[in-house]
Simulated scan of single mutants.
Amino acid sequence: MRSEDIAHRIFASAEELLNADFKIGPACLLLDVTLPEATGLELQSVLGQRGHPWPVIFMTGFGTILSPPRIIR
């Protein structure tokens, strides 16, 4: 995002995001599935309950989907 000059904010924790003062809401959240104090899905739920139904792109550094077997010819 930085290398493409896309405006962004980085939050160190879910709590920091929840306590942030937004004059306007984010256009989108890039949210990790695995957070220290909650899951990304839990944070998305709390944001919705607080009236912040922002679009979310979930990412993770921990793969949980098995790759299909490779066919070697």
Rank of each mutant, 00 (worst) to 15 (best):
L29H: 08
P53T: 13
E15V: 05
E42S: 05
E4M: 09
S45M: 11
A20E: 10
E37K: 06
R73T: 01
P55S: 08
G51C: 11
V56Q: 01
T64K: 12
I24P: 06
T60W: 12
F58M: 07
L41K: 11
L30A: 03
S13A: 02
I57N: 01
R70S: 07
F11C: 06
P68W: 02
A38E: 05
I72P: 00
D32Q: 00
Q44M: 14
Q44D: 12
G61W: 04
F58Q: 01
G48V: 11
A7G: 05
G51E: 10
F62W: 13
H52S: 13
T39Y: 03
I72V: 09
L29G: 04
G63T: 11
A12G: 11
M1C: 04
L47G: 05
S13I: 01
V46A: 12
V33M: 12
S13M: 03
A20L: 09
V46Y: 02
A14R: 00
P69N: 04
V46N: 01
R2F: 06
W54Y: 13
K23R: 13
S13N: 04
D5W: 08
T39D: 04
L47R: 07
D5L: 10
F58I: 07
S67R: 13
E15R: 02
S67E: 14
I24Y: 12
L29R: 09
R9S: 10
F58T: 06
T34M: 15
T60H: 12
I24M: 11
L18E: 08
G63K: 12
A27W: 14
I57R: 00
P26Q: 08
S67F: 09
A14F: 06
G61P: 02
G25T: 15
D32E: 01
A38Y: 00
T39V: 07
T64Y: 12
L66V: 08
E4V: 03
L31A: 03
Q49D: 09
L17D: 00
L47C: 03
A27K: 14
A7W: 09
H8Y: 14
S13K: 02
Q49H: 09
S45P: 02
P68N: 00
W54G: 10
N19H: 10
I10C: 10
D32L: 02
L30K: 01
V46I: 15
A20Y: 09
P69L: 05
W54I: 14
A12S: 10
F11E: 07
P53S: 15
K23V: 11
E4D: 10
P55L: 08
L35P: 03
N19E: 15
K23Q: 13
